[in-house]
Nucleic acid binder design. Structure first.
Lengths: 266, 266
DNA sequence: TATGTTCTTCTCATAACGAGATGAACTCAT
DNA sequence: ATGAGTTCATCTCGTTATGAGAAGAACATA
């Protein structure tokens, strides 16, 4: 900061008023497809439209840290319960801050976006100021890299939330490459095919099962064996896969690079 | 955002007042060492201490976007000149947002940090509310991964700026691996040894010259030949190296991984 | 019981990487 | 001018990682 041109007792209320909010891109895997948590707005602007869960940061009275605000909004607007440990196993990281003037038609709002990776959770219950809340398949939102203004694409999310979501998805895809965060989408014990399904859902492309299996087991600290075996085979047959836990690595080395990124390089 | 529990005409001045600032971690290479741009604070708190350049975002009157605010503060406090194109070749990206209550002893301040990569620039001139401004070698700040609170380490930077700087350095080290941003530290035309010096300065370790050379030339779009040759050899001898320009790649594929990260993996 | 699917482990060819070596070009001190 | 030391640029060689395909065993379903 360093705004030392102002007297020490300066009251920001007299200065440029800026509101700070948090928005959360919460991702999970359901039925093999990537889903994002959305709420339907009850009030204008954008009343009736879907938006990312979020809200004001408590600034001075009951001042809260930014990650705490993200968790609180997630709980308030969706009914996900901290007592049941539903929020405990969620990985939360800061995504970025969006503050372009005019992004909120009412006033200047700067929003700190967070990205959350969650294992499969129950359907949310609308709460707070949300008229509705649901896990929505990302593939059905018709998103493109440019946000929500691409030709032939309907503006489906309020504010600039389509852009925030696109940025969150790209971050998630990248994180899967060099961190073991794919395990955050899984139950505490999981199989290699389940882990592969996470990668395929997030990356949107099928992976070579044999090479994926070799890779996962060869990267130190990615997964560790439980010594047990799943009690059922695959959906349409096959042997019972072995069960693993998340290992203690925080970075995958070497990384698990996704194929065919030739177009993205330039 | 979505704070629809409030009436549409709600005035944030009546609500929790939060101030928003931008801080900039501006990095450059000087004499083969990584330097960061710091300003000396003229007013309390932390008067006389070094801090990152930064200041308030213009919120409503003359509302400005966050990256514009970062560039403006960079210019105001250091005298770096936009007319001379000094700010034009600077790569700027958002680093993260720091908003823990109490990080500013006076009031609730949320700071959006930006990371800047600059080619060699002249010494800055203190301006605005800065009592002094200088490029400071990062190695002499005694930083550790934990910020400025490590044993035997003096708190050298105001606020939580040591932590922001540490985060910026780690981001920079990572970016060099999979993007061609090392060229942003170089003049428009540069040699492979110069580029290697950038990597060595940022990563803090020596690289195998032969393998680095092979790698840089083999990654598509990293550099392109100018067909010309430098007019001088190395400092202590050697043939005149060839000159290259930055290529059009935005990602390095395959990446240029730094060696010996075994300790960081867990 | 038959058929098809899936898990898991192989093999093999190719690509990428780390370490070292070499010769030519150049600077600097003598 | 000469020699010593340095650096650029390229090459070789062994190791590791990757992509593609194959194959056997275990399982679900008709």
């Amino acid at each position: 900061m360093s705004e030392s041109e102002r007297p020490a007792g300066y009251d920001p209320r007299d200065y440029d008023p800026v509101s700070v909010t948090v928005d959360v891109v919460a991702l999970t895997i359901r039925d093999g497809a990537l889903h994002v948590l959305l709420v339907r707005r009850g009030n204008p602007p954008y009343a009736g439209m879907w938006a990312l869960p979020g809200g004001f940061v408590r600034g001075v009275r009951d001042a809260e840290d930014l990650p705490d605000a993200a968790v609180r909004e997630l709980a308030e607007e969706t009914g996900l319960n901290a007592e049941q440990g539903q929020l405990e196993r969620i990985h939360l990281e800061q995504l970025g801050t969006y503050g372009t003037p005019g992004r909120d038609p009412r006033m200047r709002v700067i929003s700190v976006a967070y990205l959350a990776f969650a294992p499969e959770l129950p359907d949310p219950k609308a709460g707070g100021d949300a008229a509705d809340a649901a896990w929505v398949p990302v593939g059905r939102l018709g998103l493109t890299d440019g946000g929500d203004q691409a030709p032939g694409t309907t503006r489906r999310l309020a504010f600039d939330h389509a852009q925030i979501l696109v940025d969150g998805l790209e971050r998630a895809r990248g994180k899967l490459e060099y961190t073991p965060l794919a395990t955050a989408f899984c139950a505490p014990e999981f199989t290699v095919p389940e882990l592969r399904a996470v990668y395929e859902a997030v990356w949107g492309e099928e992976l070579h099962a044999g090479n994926f299996h070799r890779k996962v087991l060869s990267v130190p600290g990615f997964v560790e064996s439980t010594g047990t075996t799943s009690d059922r085979g695959g959906r349409k047959g096959g042997p019972r896969p072995k069960l693993y836990r998340a290992g203690d690595a925080r970075l995958l080395h070497p990384a698990l690079l996704r194929p065919s990124r030739e177009e993205e390089i330039r």
